[in-house]
Write a protein that binds this DNA or RNA. Structure first.
Lengths: 196, 196
DNA sequence: TAATATGCGGAACAACGATCCGTTTTGTCA
DNA sequence: TGACAAAACGGATCGTTGTTCCGCATATTA
């Protein structure tokens, strides 16, 4: 990626220093605003906190999803990586699945409005949805397959279904402190188990 | 405050005919717009179709939830009434619960964006949320209790949890035709069953 | 018919997402 | 170094939507 030629001249111009500085400032500001006001906070608010203009934020992150993705990139990757690790360390595949789901739920629940955004039909969030699926679907599939193969759960459940169900159940936890998605997700996983 | 209270003095003035006509036109227009553009359609669109001004819609239905509630009032009542009826007609309480949940899901799924609105943290939808809970929570509780008493499901599940979980799982079905909440809800109910 | 409560319509304001354009900054090369 | 063009910037601006306000119209009643 460093050898791109932005035109005909050979010496690729390096990225301007103010650009990278602003991008960093935006990431920091967005992370702060997201935790205080949720991932649906007004763009202006983020731009203001970063001390940049409106166009700058759109230039670096064309859609809101791009910004959200960038902010949570590391955590999403960590969650994806945790899948195989848990499969190796847990007692049984189903236990690994449970622990991984716990991780995933923790992630979703601590980011205000993230679960909501994930299922939003807004076009701005389409790429976020895609990114989550791209990284987490294979992990879910592997965990499910392992549990099926071990005879712990019934076959036939699609990874997408499970991921989506978990995401959906995490929606709207913010306003209602006495709603705990984990209990319902536990029911869901329980319903997955093979009979007898 | 020696001033006379409006409408107290003499025979209460009957409602103006244009007012009731407009209210009816708004209900019809809203029902149409809701089915085509979802329950989050712009207020202006509804007002335009009804052929009334903006203020008129706000006068009759101060919040969007009031309009939604009015439009779906009959169906919500029918859903609530179906609970006891199914309990009487079904083979077992759990079967009744399943059938009733099916009804509820059908209702939610056919109203675009209704499930989304139900869990929305927007203040406009607070009263809608409250209305649903007010009518359907007792029904859910009765179905759950009966199934517990019959030993078909484990005790300990709160009616609100179940209702909310079902509602959440129905969110966002519109955009993704290959997402069927019913399968996940079936898993949820399966997870409810008492151990053999 | 006249008086008045009641209701009406649309202008107006605010918040937000998204875009556009004149200006500034930065890196490069003579 | 100094000038130039690409790159980036900032904020004005537009379009959309929710919500309120106010002068005007009208149905009802006396």
């Amino acid at each position: 990626m460093a050898g791109e030629e932005p035109g005909r001249r050979m010496a690729a111009r390096s990225k301007r220093s103010d650009a990278v500085r602003n991008q960093q400032a935006l990431l920091t500001a967005a992370a702060e605003v997201f935790t205080t006001s949720g991932v649906n906070a007004p763009i202006r608010q983020i731009a203001a906190r970063a001390g940049v203009g409106l166009a700058t934020i759109y230039r670096h992150f064309p859609t809101r999803a791009d910004l959200v993705t960038a902010v949570y990139h590391h955590q999403i990757e960590a969650c994806a990586d945790a899948g195989p690790a848990l499969l190796a360390s847990a007692d049984t595949p189903l236990a690994a699945l449970r622990q991984w789901v716990d991780l995933f739920v923790d992630f979703l629940v601590t980011k205000h409005g993230l679960a909501d955004a994930l299922q939003s039909d807004s076009a701005s969030f389409a790429t976020l949805h895609a990114y989550f699926l791209d990284r987490l679907l294979p992990v879910t599939a592997r965990l499910l397959d392992a549990a099926v193969e071990a005879g712990e759960i019934r076959p036939g459940t699609q990874p997408y279904e499970l991921l989506r169900g978990i995401g959906n159940l995490c929606i709207g936890r913010d306003d209602n402190p006495d709603y705990d998605p984990r209990r319902l997700i536990d029911l869901l996983l329980r319903g997955l188990r093979s009979e007898a």
